[in-house]
């Protein structure tokens, strides 16, 4: 049996995006609800890199925040190594907090500009009591800086003295300082230039081998996901439409949306790839289409797709939520 670390079951998150109460009463408006994550279930095994891909508004970042407990779910549950992840501050959460860390997209916003880098990295060590005396803490910070490819004297600097890529290294060092088993990486390289992105991706892989980390890797960039992920979940308007092994998803995509997404990626291998023109855009998540949310853009949609919502079902080695695949029309 595989060793499951994260188990997400029927997770949903609804945001209230209505106007203020008084405006609603005066303008006779109804409450508006945005379902950012809709009945999502997946598992992440120990040591793997599970990636979530999707376009903007597909709910990737909301899932990341739900998993680290930054926001609470509207329905469903998330278990980390058997312990349910609850809201901030609860006793059970405090126990697993250090085992669960996060790297954010924007290294300019995620580091406190008034703190020296060594204090930023030492905060989790102090917070979780991972070092007793001052000098072991300093030593640990130095080690971490070197692990992520910076040098010990860099600890005395402030974040603004670093470039984007170096800042992301600091953010990684901070995440590692709590000795986590699991790191949620929300678009860790989208703010970086490609040559720096390559450095960070290589570093993340090395760290995974060294510390046996498990990653949840969130990105909109399919080629980055392909490079990093062992398994991939594709999101569309808050729902998982396909889960598959990294290689399988790219060689043999099943869901029409996955196919469309793969066709849309501009590629360096220009020669010979027949691409279908992509049609339409992601609908407004406040007012999603009925049935399968993808049906207005789907070449295979029929009457059933407009009324019923497909659920994820086993298909080969992965899972697909599509009636066309289920009925063999794909």
């Amino acid at each position: 049996m595989t060793d499951m670390l994260i188990n997400v079951e029927n997770l949903s998150r609804v945001f209230d995006v209505s106007k203020p109460w008084l405006n609603r009463v005066l303008e006779n408006d109804e409450k508006k609800l945005l379902t950012a994550v809709n009945n999502v279930s997946f598992q992440i095994n120990r040591g793997e890199t599970f990636a979530l891909v999707g376009e903007s508004g597909s709910g990737k970042s909301t899932i990341a925040k739900l998993i680290v407990g930054l926001i609470g779910p509207s329905a469903g549950r998330i278990a980390f190594d058997g312990t349910e992840i609850a809201s901030q501050g609860s006793v059970s959460m405090r126990q697993i907090r250090s085992r669960l860390q996060m790297i954010f997209q924007d290294p300019f916003a995620s580091l406190n500009p008034r703190w020296r880098v060594r204090d930023i990295i030492a905060e989790p060590i102090r917070k979780f009591g991972l070092a007793d005396e001052g000098d072991t803490q300093d030593k640990r910070v130095e080690q971490l800086l070197e692990t992520v490819g910076l040098s010990a004297p860099d600890g005395a600097k402030y974040p603004h003295e670093f470039s984007g890529g170096q800042r992301q290294r600091v953010a990684i060092a901070r995440a590692l300082s709590a000795k986590p088993e699991f790191i949620v990486c929300d678009e860790p390289t989208s703010a970086l230039d490609v040559s720096v992105q390559a450095q960070i991706l290589n570093l993340m892989r090395d760290l995974q081998d060294e510390f046996g980390l498990t990653y949840l890797f969130i990105s909109h960039d399919l080629s980055v996901v392909r490079h990093m992920a062992t398994r991939i979940g594709v999101l569309y308007l808050g729902r998982l439409v396909e889960i598959a092994d990294g290689k399988t998803l790219f060689s043999d995509p099943q869901h029409p949306y996955t196919k469309m997404l793969l066709d849309a990626v501009p590629d360096l291998e220009m020669a010979g790839r027949q691409r279908k023109p992509v049609e339409g855009e992601i609908p407004n998540p406040i007012d999603p289409p009925s049935g399968c949310a993808f049906h207005p853009r789907c070449p295979l949609a029929n009457a059933r797709c407009k009324t019923e919502t497909p659920e994820l079902a086993a298909n080969g080695t992965g899972e697909v939520a599509c009636f066309a695949v289920e009925e063999g029309r794909a």
Binding site: S195, A198, N202, S223, V224, R226, H227, D267, L268, E269
Partner: peptide, 12 residues
């Protein structure tokens, strides 16, 4: 340094 959709590379 650009990951591609077509090739398998272990490290960039």
């Amino acid at each position: 340094s650009i990951p591609t959709l077509m090739q398998d590379e272990d490290r960039l």
